[in-house]
Amino acid sequence: MELVVARIGRAHGIKGEVTVEVRTDEPEVRLAPGAVLATDPPGTGPLTIETGRVHSGRLLLRFSGVADRSAAEALRNTLLIAEVDPQETPEDPEEYYDHQLIDLDVVTRDGTEVGRITEISHLPYQDLLVVARPGGGEVLIPFVHEIVPEIDLAEQRAVIDPPPGLLEEPPGVDGADGADGAEDGRR
């Protein structure tokens, strides 16, 4: 199974280093020196990580064969893809890989259908489950134990205990309440 583990950003310096936007919970494993990663678009890879370091809170990587700023800049916006065994699981039983969560049915504790997980959004302070609603639209669910107390991979479902208001449609979604600013003259 292939997983996107990072996106290459700007070139850093003149010796071929690039910044990367990390998209994996295990950068020390997936983005370690010696790792060989496929790319999207495919014509730019595979790329082998030569060195990695953190500078000012950003991960910088240098790839074999990328020796200068011009070559590094040519890789900008390239996605880095790791080959992962689909049976592989994190060491901590309370952690999950994104591919294990995608397509799980989401239900409340009382069995009410909420939708299906389509994406995991990794934010700096917490992860969010992006859940497609059966009637259209989506809801963002904080992926914390208090709200998502149970993940059942065998049953292919996530059980949630949503706080009040989490599953309600925000005001103005249908435009019926004047939330577009038309009533008070704002546009």
Results as ranks from 00 to 15, higher is better:
Arg76Cys: 12
Gly137Gln: 06
His122Ile: 08
Glu26Thr: 11
Val5Trp: 00
Gly52Glu: 09
Ile8Asn: 02
Gln126Arg: 15
Pro42Met: 05
Val4Met: 15
Asp40Tyr: 04
Ser121Leu: 13
Thr112Arg: 15
Gly115Phe: 03
Leu140Arg: 14
Gln100Thr: 07
Glu119Ala: 10
Glu83Met: 14
Arg23Leu: 15
His12Gly: 02
Lys15Cys: 02
Phe143Glu: 00
Tyr96Arg: 12
Leu129Pro: 01
Glu26Ala: 12
Arg76Trp: 06
Ala74Met: 09
Gly13Ala: 10
Val4Glu: 15
Glu168Thr: 12
His12Ala: 14
Thr44Glu: 11
Val139Thr: 15
Gly185Val: 03
Pro170Cys: 07
Ala35Trp: 04
Asp25Pro: 01
Gly175Cys: 07
Arg58Gly: 02
Glu150Pro: 00
Val144Arg: 15
Pro93Ile: 03
Arg23Tyr: 09
Leu80His: 01
Ala182Ile: 07
Gly16Tyr: 00
Gln126Phe: 10
Glu138Gly: 06
Asp68Ala: 11
Gly175Met: 07
Glu113Lys: 08
Tyr97Lys: 14
Glu21Tyr: 06
Gly175Ser: 03
Pro46Asp: 05
Pro170Gly: 04
Arg157Tyr: 00
Pro149Tyr: 04
Pro134Asp: 08
Gly115Trp: 03
Thr39Asp: 06
Leu101Ser: 07
Val84Gln: 10
Pro90Val: 04
Val148Asn: 09
Pro33Glu: 08
Ala71Pro: 02
Ile49Asp: 01
Glu73Phe: 08
Pro170Phe: 06
Thr112Lys: 14
Gly115Glu: 06
Gly43Thr: 10
Ile147Met: 05
Arg69Leu: 04
Ala35Leu: 05
Ala32Gly: 02
Val22Ser: 08
Gly52His: 03
Leu167Asp: 07
Val66Lys: 04
Thr108Tyr: 05
Gly9Glu: 09
Ala71Asn: 11
Glu95Cys: 12
Ala179Phe: 06
Gly52Asn: 11
Arg53Pro: 01
Glu150Trp: 01
Thr78Ile: 15
Val29His: 06
Pro163Asp: 06
Ala176Pro: 00
Asp98His: 06
Gly34Phe: 07
Glu83Val: 14
Gly178Val: 02
Ile117Asn: 00
Ser121Lys: 10
Asp103Val: 02
Glu113Leu: 14
Thr24Val: 09
Gly178Arg: 07
Arg133Ala: 12
Gln100Glu: 15
Pro164Leu: 01
Glu73Met: 12
Asp85Glu: 11
Pro170Tyr: 07
Pro90Arg: 13
Glu119Tyr: 05
Val114Met: 09
Leu75Thr: 11
Val159His: 05
Glu17Asp: 11
Glu2Leu: 12
Arg53Ala: 14
Val159Met: 07
Glu168Leu: 13
Glu28Asp: 14
Glu28Arg: 10
Ser70Pro: 00
Ile14Cys: 01
Ser70Phe: 08
Gln126Cys: 10
Val139Gly: 05
Pro93Glu: 10
Ile147Trp: 00
Val29Gln: 11
His55Val: 13
Tyr96Thr: 09
His122Leu: 12
Ile120Leu: 15
Leu79Asn: 08
